[in-house]
Design a protein around this nucleic acid. Structure first.
Lengths: 225, 225
DNA sequence: AGGCAAAGTGACTGGTCAGTCATGTTGCGA
DNA sequence: TCGCAACATGACTGACCAGTCACTTTGCCT
C-alpha cells in the first residue's frame, strides 16, 4: 500500500484509474513546462511524454493547455503551503527559539525545491509573468495563491511578534519579504552559481545558504556592536 | 536645446535622425513588451505604435523581434547601473552613515521604477524566464547583465564591510540579496497592493516602503533588546 | 529638372500549434 | 455473445505572426 491519505472516499477502480492517468499527464506537463516554458511547450510533446494521444488530454483537461498549466500551479501552491505548515507545526516548534525555527523553515524550502526543481522553474518562468498579466482573472488567481501562501507564513510570524521574538512589523509584509528571499536564493542554488568566481561560495549548498539567509534576515546587515 | 550629453561625436543630421527613429521604435517596443509580454507582443503592433511599417523595423534591427527585445534590455540594465552608481557616488555619500546611504539607494530604485513601470514589467515578465532559458546564449546574456548590476552594487558594499559598517559577508551575496528585496517590494508598489486588506499598508508608498526595507535589511527581524 | 541611393511599406509566405472530431478500441453488464 | 458507453487517437483545420521582398516615396546632389 502506498501510504498516506489515498482513496479515503469509496472510489471505484474506474475512478481510481482515471485519477492515475490524470496525474501522469500532469507529471509530464510539469516536466515540459519546466523545460520549455509555457509558450514553447506543445501539447504534442506533453501527450507524447505522457504516452497518450493529444486528443486524450482533452478528456482530462477540458480547458486544454491553459487548464493543464493551472492544474500544475494548484498542486505547486498546495505543496508549498504544506512545507510552511509543517515547518511551523505547533508541536515541533514549541519552546524553540524563533531563529532556529526560521532556519529549519528556510532549509525545508530549499530542500523541497531542490527535489522538485521543475516546480521552481515553472514558478519562475510563468508565475511572475502571469501575476502582471493583462488578463484580470489570471492575475487574480496568482495574487490569491500567493496570498494563501504568504498568509500561511504570516500566522506563525504574528505569533512570534506577539511573543516578542520578532520586531513588531506587519506580519504580511514580513512574510512576503521572507518568501521573496527564499526564492531569490533558490535561484542561485538552481543555477549552480556559475557566476560565483572567486570564492567557493557558501551559497552553493542548501545548508550554508540557509545559514546565510537566516543570519541576514534575523540579524540584519549591520555589523555586530 | 535639449540638455545633457548629446551628439558629442560629429554626427551628420542623417545619422542623428536615424538614431532618433531607432529610439522611437524602442520606445514603442518597450510599451508593447511591457503590456503584452514578449510572446504576445506583435511586430505589427510595435510598428503601428511607432508609426512605421513593419518592414522598417528590420532596417533598424536586423535580428527582428528578438533583437529589439535585447536592445530594450541593454538600455534597462544601463539605466539600473546608473541608479546604483549615482546612489553610491563617493562625493555624495562621504561620511554619511551606511544606513542612510542604503535608504537613499533603495528609495532611488523605487522612484526609478515608479517612473518607468514599463521597464520593471519587462524585467519581471521576461528576464527571469530567460535566465533559465534552455538557450545557452540567452541565459548567459542575463547572467552577465545581472552580474554587472550586482557587481556595481557589490563594490560600495565591500567598502562598507571594510569600514566595519556592515557585517562581514561576501559582498556579492549581499548585493544579490539587496537587489532581490528591492524587486520584491517594487512588485507590491507596482501591483498597487490590492491585497493589503486590513491596514493602510506602509508598503504602498515608495518612502515608507523604503523605510521598511531599510530597517529589515539593516537591523533584521530580531526584536530590539 | 532629373537621377539615384536611402528609407519606407504592407501584402504575402511558410511554419507552427491549439483545438476538433470522425473513427477506432476496450471492457463491462446483460 | 452482443451492444453500448467510455475512452483513446492523430490527421486535419483555422488562426496567428515573424520575416521577406518587390515596389513606392523621399530628399539630396548635380
Amino acid at each position: 500500500m502506498p501510504s498516506t491519505l489515498e482513496a479515503n472516499p469509496p472510489l471505484t477502480r474506474r475512478e481510481r484509474e482515471r485519477q492515475m492517468r490524470r496525474t501522469e499527464i500532469l507529471q509530464a506537463a510539469k516536466a515540459v513546462f519546466a523545460e520549455k516554458g509555457y509558450t514553447h511547450a506543445t501539447l504534442d510533446e506533453i501527450a507524447q511524454r505522457a504516452e497518450f494521444g493529444k486528443g486524450t488530454l482533452y478528456n482530462y483537461f477540458e480547458g486544454g493547455k491553459e487548464d493543464i498549466l493551472f492544474a500544475c500551479f494548484d498542486k505547486i501552491y498546495d505543496d508549498l503551503c504544506e512545507v510552511v505548515e509543517s515547518s511551523f507545526d505547533a508541536d515541533a516548534t514549541a519552546g524553540r527559539p524563533f531563529r532556529e525555527v526560521l532556519y529549519h523553515f528556510i532549509l525545508a524550502n530549499f530542500n523541497f525545491f531542490m527535489e522538485h526543481q521543475e516546480l521552481f522553474m515553472i514558478l519562475v518562468k510563468e508565475a511572475y509573468r502571469m501575476t502582471f498579466s493583462d488578463d484580470r482573472d489570471k492575475a487574480a488567481y496568482f495574487q490569491q495563491q500567493r496570498e494563501r501562501l504568504v498568509g500561511t507564513l504570516a500566522r506563525p510570524l504574528e505569533a512570534a511578534v506577539a511573543a516578542g521574538e520578532v520586531r513588531p512589523m506587519p506580519p504580511h509584509a514580513l512574510a512576503h519579504m521572507i518568501m521573496g528571499n527564499v526564492s531569490g536564493l533558490q535561484m542561485h542554488l538552481t543555477l549552480g552559481c556559475a557566476d560565483d568566481m572567486e570564492e567557493e561560495s557558501m551559497l552553493n549548498k542548501p545548508e550554508t545558504a540557509a545559514q546565510f539567509l537566516t543570519t541576514m534576515l534575523f540579524d540584519g546587515l549591520k555589523a555586530n556592536a
